[in-house]
């Protein structure tokens, strides 16, 4: 185990959505390599609070990589330099002594800054609400084993369903496009037999909402896939495109 480190943080500070933000430099001293990135920020915040200053605000909750609350654009990359993890799973041993670390919020007009590094991702919820569901009421559903689903299909649907809605795909995309996020949900349900009745309706509704939220267009750079903490594949995007064109240009109904 290597010794403790000293880091220089350049952190985006912004009082609220209306105000102008700026970078402020902080020293993070005696950082243990065993700390998570967020714990390092906790320690910096403790120091700020002791001085009576406002701590750095950032979203976080489960701190085990599943809730999708944590974000942070660290040294130019969403969730920092490592592949397939969220910021809360990033440990300080991934950094070097005396390193300068630039920390920014997700940048997208559909993700306005709330304060400092915390952004408003409710646009994601609105997209989900537009069609990310199967219309079944509680009760009155068939027995769970009445529809066999091939294991490969179930596994593929599961892979799409692992999206945690963190927004790293949008943050990584040079166009701030939400295609990976939207397509993951569309795919999950397009793959499963349960999702078929509303398959084409769903994709149209979700894409329309995605566009209304002001996300950019996909230019197939693949940055989303590379930065997704759950390693969701852009095959989902192709599947969504196919379904969308099918729905709008070929299918007769709806």
């Amino acid at each position: 185990m290597s010794g403790n480190m000293n880091l220089t943080l350049k952190v985006w500070r912004q009082k609220n959505a209306e105000s102008q933000g700026k970078f402020v430099t902080y020293k993070a001293e005696q950082v243990s390599p065993d700390m998570s990135f967020l714990e390092m920020l906790d320690v910096v915040n403790e120091g700020l609070i002791k001085k009576g200053e406002d701590p750095i605000h950032f979203d976080h909750d489960c701190r085990e990589g599943i809730c999708g609350a944590c974000s942070l654009h660290i040294n130019g990359r969403p969730h920092g330099p490592k592949h397939g993890i969220t910021t809360c799973q990033l440990h300080m041993r991934s950094f070097n002594d005396n390193e300068i670390v630039v920390i920014e919020p997700w940048r997208a007009s559909a993700f306005p800054v709330i304060r400092d590094l915390a952004v408003d991702r409710t646009s994601f919820d609105r997209i989900q609400a537009a069609g990310g569901f199967i219309s079944v009421n509680t009760g009155g559903v068939p027995d769970a084993n009445s529809i066999p689903i091939p294991k490969v299909v179930a596994d593929e649907a599961f892979n799409s369903a692992t999206c945690i809605g963190c927004g790293a795909c949008v943050a990584a995309c040079k166009n701030a496009s939400a295609m990976l996020f939207v397509s993951a949900k569309v795919s999950q349900m397009a793959l499963l037999p349960q999702g078929q009745p509303e398959r084409y309706r769903r994709v149209q509704a979700m894409v329309a909402q995605m566009d209304a939220e002001g996300f950019g267009s996909c230019t197939n750079t693949g940055a989303c896939e590379a930065e997704c903490p759950k390693e969701i594949s852009i095959t989902n995007i192709a599947r969504m495109n196919r379904d969308y064109f099918n729905a709008t240009l070929i299918k007769n109904e709806e």
């Binding site: 350049k10 985006w12 970078f23 654009h73 040294n75 130019g76 990359r77 330099p81 630039v102 920014e104 940048r107 997208a108 007009s109 559909a110 990584a172 040079k174 166009n175 701030a176 496009s177 002001g214 996300f215 950019g216 750079t221 693949g222 940055a223 590379a226 930065e227």
Partner: peptide, 16 residues
């Protein structure tokens, strides 16, 4: 328009 405020640092070469 989808990203009115640009990143100060963006390591695009790391992911695309």
């Amino acid at each position: 328009k989808a990203r009115p405020v640009a990143y100060a640092m963006q390591a695009g070469n790391q992911n695309s």
